[in-house]
Write a protein that binds this DNA or RNA. Structure first.
Lengths: 219, 219
DNA sequence: CCGCTATGTAATCGTCGATTACATTTCGTG
DNA sequence: CACGAAATGTAATCGACGATTACATAGCGG
């Protein structure tokens, strides 16, 4: 076995013209984000070095694209958040009900479903432990849009006299705490301790959302 | 200033008989747990080495008491959980109301107050990322007791006809998701993004709990 | 064609968790 | 009381990681 040799592309072996790689590696930034996303999805620790390994690149290379690990994680979070938002909006598009509470319910369900099917991505987005959250304007904006979405639903519901309480902010926070808490209980492995079986979780999510809606609806 | 010298007890300078230190350092295990707790409370990363430094001991010493970092974190979690449980029970002792829903409410408030005043400890207990949760029987038992406590309250409330729904498990999970989610939103720094001011949080916690109670109460 | 900039490599540092060999203290038992 | 075993701590070392630096190379534009 030859002793590990310098692994630069051979001097005059030009790349095939077919693939237009603009630079040495060809958008290493993108490849690193994807590698990190995959790492997260596998439940593994996301390290800059491992992402570099998967991109077949030296350990120092990523730092040309991200000043530090935090910045890579922030980029990963932005990508995950984008997917999250797309899925939520798709689910809402499939529920064009006129009833604002029905849409509120659909939102909660889509939120929980995505969180439970993409636990690692959800964690990166929401936990605020992988990077400094103030840094990403895109993340903040994306999140604010989703918040505004539910605000509108609730305001509409209030206008139509569907709610018994007029404190919309309180309802808003409580609703978010409910779905966020449920998602995190799943993420943090609380459900086995609570006697909730694996296959039972998604049904329980529906039940919990229904309970909340019934709790705020006019009686 | 003298150059940091080996800090072993002087050869024949026997310790005062008053304090019975059984071994070299005198319950290093205890000191390490306290150091780690303090580290967490400061918001710093909890590393075995730093705990060892604070205990003025070599980096390898802690491994005589904990097989690995996880085990140290588990011990820290047990200590934190113990304090958590003590505080909850004290709060309930101060609320000897006959009304089970009032006690349920007091439980939720005590839960949230502790979580918001000891964020790092709450995180270690609940996040399941600092150690493998299956390992600590004490933690599991402690938690199960608190769960049983709220179960009894709810069962009592149902007996007295205070609830409109009979699905106690669903109510239980929803209630837990609500307080857990609220605590984690605070922990994960979500509230600034939600326009909730720092001083407003505790009041909002009360409001959210009241909303939930009102939502499950007989109408 | 030449030089500038973007990008990647190699080498290095300090920290961490973990393991091992060795030293010292404590304790129980004969 | 002495001595050996067990408990406890130290020192040295390993490999992985994040990060920085000096250097090399590819591609673009004047």
């Amino acid at each position: 076995m030859p002793k590990l040799v310098r692994q630069t592309p051979k001097p005059r072996a030009r790349r095939q013209a077919s693939e237009a790689r603009p630079y040495h590696h060809g958008d290493l930034r993108r490849v690193l984000i994807d590698a990190a996303l995959q790492l997260a999805a596998e439940g593994a620790e996301v390290s800059v070095r491992e992402a570099a390994r998967r991109a077949a690149v030296s350990p120092g290379a990523p730092f040309r694209h991200f000043p530090n690990r935090d910045a890579l994680m922030a980029a990963v979070a932005e990508e995950a958040q984008r997917r999250f938002r797309v899925e939520i909006e798709a689910a809402l598009a499939e529920t064009p009900s006129a009833d604002p509470l029905a849409r509120f319910c659909a939102f909660g369900l889509a939120y929980l479903r995505w969180a439970m099917r993409n636990p690692a991505h959800f964690e990166i987005i929401s936990s605020g432990r992988y990077f400094t959250h103030g840094s990403s304007a895109e993340l903040t904006r994306d999140n604010a849009e989703l918040v505004a979405l539910t605000e509108r639903m609730l305001a509409e519901a209030a206008e139509q006299g569907l709610l018994w309480s007029g404190d919309l902010k309180r309802i808003q926070i409580a609703g978010r705490a409910l779905v966020y808490g449920f998602a995190r209980m799943n993420l943090d492995g609380h459900f086995p301790r609570w006697g909730v079986e694996e296959g039972e979780i998604e049904r329980m999510a529906e039940g919990v959302i229904d309970l909340f809606i019934a709790g705020i609806a006019k009686r």
